[in-house]
Design a binder for these strands. Structure first.
Lengths: 191, 191, 191, 191
DNA sequence: AGTTAACCGAGACGGTACGTCGCGTCTTGTT
DNA sequence: AACAAGACGCGACGTACCGTCTCGGTTAACT
């Protein structure tokens, strides 16, 4: 065998896809534009990815690490506020454009429909892990369904971010958590 | 002036758009297919709507009425459960396909980006009104931000429905409300 | 009966058709443009003319008179030179653009295919009449077929004008007639 | 470099254009119909030709050879009669439909306006060559402008064929040449 | 003097073809 | 064998005009 996959081309394609997506939007980021921007033949793209969503998904999955890790100061409420604030800040960057485009295309593109939940899974698992630790420490109700807790916490974020029903106030997540957390925390037995 | 708009054509176009969207999906519903299905020239569509999203938005806005009205039995928790259950059922129908497509296209199409929040506004306002009544009746905390409450309630629905991170259990909204409502309701002074 | 044809509209339409044809060319002179330019409804045009060619033909037929009448100085060769020179000058004006467009559309449009020969007939008949007079005066061969003579004289003009095979020299018709006329004139019996 | 032009497609397109032009006429021969008839994408046509006229011109130029060559029996008058008769016969075939359409479109289409004279040039040059030989042999006047001679000979043909002013008699070219040739031939000095 | 019907402007309508864009596949050398 | 380049068949785009068809409104002949 010889002539294996060209790693340079792979990175150039992913980088070009992100660049275009950030500058001209997800919808007008075409395979042809990516190929041209990356200085690559279309064939090379189609050989390795089935759609533009796949390229961006691969890009996200390989570069996710540092982005929005969970802090652990021992105070679950404070840590959630820190992390969700980071997430909302991230959504306001170029990353947000890509991610929004992927979520949108997941409604019709098969690859995106599988990739989006897969990407989210990691973040959710990290969140669940942090919540589980807090639960173990008695900071959260023992009977709390942690998957559900994630949805209660992140639901409002995606609701405002995707549906754009109102301008998001700066202290949005502070208010959300202030309102929500009492329902998640263990009752303080002060009878 | 003269030569007014043909109301028959207008309705045929909207109906055709919904039919196609339901049967072949939002992404593959083309203007040409709508025109053909409606027995109408493409020009007639482009004369009145700038994109397929606009057609579907107009259809939704003119036929919204009855779909998911708010019950009022006096019990806010029960009413929310009823209504959100109805909404989730609605999302599982053809309407859901259209709505999902519109939300997706709102991430790139200007018209959809305006229409989706406009459509939601009405539903949110109805929800807020019902919540306000409950608040007035002392069933909800007096200092509760009702817009936020809506996001806390519907956020999890859209989170699961759009992001598809896990299969939605049948009693999903029951669990959501059971967990969430204590944080929204007025504290029962039983000291 | 009542409400007869609006003469003002008729003239405005013909005038607009000529104006557009002269300024933007025959091909891009559309019925819609004529209607707009004339400040007239499309219906009014279609009520009275079957195609744009018909409008221009009517315009030519009603305004032909003065354009290229035949002089009669008694010298047939000189008169032909005068007249053909006038014709070629006319072909270089806006009239030429219209006439060329009509001849072109006569290759496909039924109305033009009838109108072009009808318009030409008049000119040819005038030419034939002048030739007949010369023939009667013994200036042309007695056995000359005058229809053919017209084609021999005008053929080269249309050949160069329609087929554009070479730049037309200024003394073109002088040379044509100098070469051709000996074949048409009666032999001078100088035995 | 790579990915060269598909010769099969090229020929299929030209053939389809001729077939359609012959069967439905030049005016109603559309690019879409040609593409469909040739089993080819529209893009492939637009990639290589700017208009349908260009296709037909290329077809004519690449297949011109045999069509109406000049005989050379030594008798210039007889040879001209033979050749012009052939031309008129050719004009009555499908080729005539194409050629007429091209001449018509040359009045508005830039490509046709260049192509028609270019195609004619070859035929004219052949005619001029034959005339020059006759002139060299003393059969034509020494001072005869041969370009002009061509126009005198072919002018009547195009006049009748394009302008359709009268039904063309069967012996048309015989009469034309009988009338015209004396003006072109060298005077026989029999004083 | 009032009625009324044809003509008028405006322009919406169902269509056809336009010329362009991007798709995903393919072919042709080059590295 | 993978690559760049890009031609290919295809489908949809949004536009321009086609010729037909309502719409009121005007207007001129005939009640």
């Amino acid at each position: 065998m010889s002539a294996q996959r060209n790693e340079q081309a792979r990175q150039a394609i992913i980088a070009a896809a992100f660049r275009l997506c950030a500058s001209t939007g997800f919808a007008s980021t075409t395979i042809e534009a990516i190929a041209s921007e990356a200085g690559v033949g279309k064939t090379t793209i189609y050989r390795w990815w089935p759609s533009k969503a796949a390229i961006l998904i691969e890009g996200l999955e390989s570069a996710r690490d540092s982005s929005a890790a969970f802090p652990d100061t021992g105070d679950i409420t404070a840590d959630l506020l820190t992390q969700t604030t980071n997430v909302m800040a991230l959504f306001a960057t170029d990353f947000g454009l890509v991610w929004r485009g992927l979520i949108a295309s997941a409604q019709s593109d098969q690859i995106a429909a599988e990739g989006v939940p897969r990407i989210l899974r990691t973040s959710i698992d990290q969140c669940v892990a942090r919540l589980a630790k807090a639960q173990g420490a008695g900071q959260l109700r023992a009977d709390l369904d942690l998957e559900l807790a994630v949805e209660l916490i992140y639901g409002p974020i995606y609701h405002t971010w995707l549906l754009r029903t109102r301008p998001v106030p700066p202290d949005f997540m502070h208010t959300v958590l202030t309102t929500l957390m009492p329902a998640l925390t263990a009752p303080t037995n002060e009878a």
